[in-house]
Lab assay of single mutants.
Amino acid sequence: KEEVSSHTSPETGIWVTLGSEVFDVTEFVDLHPGGPSKLMLAAGGPLEPFWALYAVHNQSHVRELLAQYKIGEL
């Protein structure tokens, strides 16, 4: 988790977690339908608090999209 928390910018890579999985979403930030700034709120940390607020994320196609960016496990 400490390593994930240091990845919060395009220069270091933008990493997020979901459960025990780690994702590098650097290439996706500008494609995020809610805008880059919304995704950047989660940079370096867990997606769960944000996904709890926005139910649109609880769809299979969203998880499939995220899976493409998986880089490891906590």
Rank of each mutant, 00 (worst) to 15 (best):
Y54E: 12
G35L: 04
E11Y: 05
G34D: 00
Q68D: 09
S60W: 09
V25I: 12
A43D: 09
I14R: 01
S37E: 13
D24L: 03
L47G: 10
P33L: 10
P49L: 06
S60P: 15
Y54A: 03
T8W: 08
M40E: 03
E73M: 10
V29M: 10
I71T: 09
E2P: 08
L65I: 14
G13P: 03
G35E: 02
P33S: 06
I14Y: 02
I14L: 12
V62S: 00
V29I: 13
R63P: 03
T26S: 12
E21G: 12
V16A: 09
L66K: 01
A42P: 15
A42F: 01
D30N: 12
L65W: 08
L41Y: 04
E11C: 11
G44T: 00
S6W: 12
L65T: 14
F50M: 10
V4E: 07
L74K: 11
L53Q: 15
K70M: 09
S6T: 15
V25Q: 00
T26L: 02
F28T: 00
L41T: 06
P10D: 10
L39C: 03
S37Q: 12
F28V: 04
M40S: 05
V4K: 04
S5L: 14
P49G: 05
V25H: 00
P36I: 04
E2T: 14
W15L: 10
L53K: 15
L65H: 10
I71E: 01
E27P: 12
H57G: 09
S20Q: 15
I71L: 11
I71Y: 03
Q59P: 05
W15E: 02
A42L: 09
S60V: 13
Y54K: 05
W51L: 03
L31P: 01
P10A: 12
L39R: 05
L41S: 10
S9R: 14
L74V: 12
G34I: 00
E2H: 11
V22M: 12
P49T: 07
P49S: 07
A55R: 12
K1H: 09
T12F: 08
Y69D: 00
V56D: 03
V25L: 07
A42C: 08
D24S: 04
A55G: 14
E27F: 01
A42Y: 00
P36R: 13
L41F: 04
P10T: 12
V62C: 06
G34C: 01
G35T: 03
A52S: 14
R63C: 05
A55H: 14
I14C: 06
E2W: 09
K70S: 05
G45A: 13
V4F: 08
G34V: 00
E64N: 06
V4I: 14
T12V: 11
M40V: 07
E3R: 11
G35Y: 00
S37W: 10
A43G: 04
V62H: 00
Q68T: 14
A52H: 12
P33A: 01
D30H: 10
V56Y: 06
L47M: 01
E3G: 12
L18H: 15
S37Y: 08
H32Q: 00
V4H: 04
G19E: 10
T17D: 00
A43S: 02
L18F: 11
P10V: 11
D24M: 02
E3D: 10
H61M: 05
A42D: 01
G45I: 06
H7A: 02
K70W: 07
V56I: 06
T8I: 15
E27K: 13
I14K: 06
E64F: 04
F23C: 04
V22H: 02
L31T: 04
L31W: 06
K1T: 08
T26Y: 01
P36C: 08
P10M: 12
E73V: 09
E27V: 06
A52L: 06
P36Q: 02
H61S: 10
I71W: 08
H7I: 06
P33N: 02
F50Y: 15
V16Q: 01
L66P: 01
E11F: 04
Q59F: 01
Q68Y: 05
L53V: 14
S20Y: 10
V4L: 13
T8R: 14
L31H: 08
F23G: 00
W51S: 03
P10W: 12
L66D: 04
A52F: 02
E2Y: 10
H57V: 05
K70Q: 09
A67Y: 13
I71V: 15
G13D: 07
V62G: 01
S60G: 12
S9T: 13
L65Q: 11
W15A: 02
E3F: 15
T12H: 12
S6A: 15
P10Y: 11
W51D: 09
P36A: 13
G13S: 07
T26N: 02
T17S: 14
F50C: 03
S60A: 12
F23L: 03
M40N: 02
W15Y: 14
L74S: 09
H57R: 01
D24W: 00
E48H: 00
